[in-house]
């Protein structure tokens, strides 16, 4: 199963990077969303996908899923939500201000050097 997951993660990262490199700001934001999903699954897969029951103590169960990656991912999900919300609003603001989402037109000028 880890092998399949590794491929899924690879596809997620590939799609994310492809979108982030494009000229449209909207696609860049979609890319960052995919990137965070990829990262979460990567952490999960690194820890191993074994374990027959969720990491909640219960009588007679010894084979828990690894709790540590889950704790890390839980934090990461919340943070990435914060980042996504921030980026979406900043995009909304940028578009309202400049009237374009073309990254090539948003590169500043010599005065900003």
């Amino acid at each position: 199963m880890e092998f399949i997951m590794a491929i899924v993660i690879g596809v997620l990262f590939m799609a994310a990077v492809y979108l982030i490199l494009s000229r449209s700001l909207l696609r860049v934001i979609l890319g960052t969303g995919l990137l965070s999903h990829g990262a979460h699954l990567l952490i999960l897969t690194m820890g191993g996908l074994g374990g027959t029951s969720p990491p909640v103590l219960a009588d007679g169960i010894t084979d828990y899923a690894d709790p540590l990656p889950q704790a890390l991912i839980l934090t990461a999900i919340v943070i990435s939500f914060g980042v996504t919300a921030f980026i979406v609003v900043s995009f909304y603001r940028t578009y309202g201000e400049h009237g374009t989402d073309n990254m090539n037109l948003m590169k500043g000028n010599d005065e900003h050097d």
Partner: peptide, 21 residues
Amino acid sequence: GNFIIAAAVGVTVTLIALSAH
């Protein structure tokens, strides 16, 4: 060009995921 970079990143991450596990 974008695709090549993207594919390279994807493959790298796949390799990392496999060997890290």
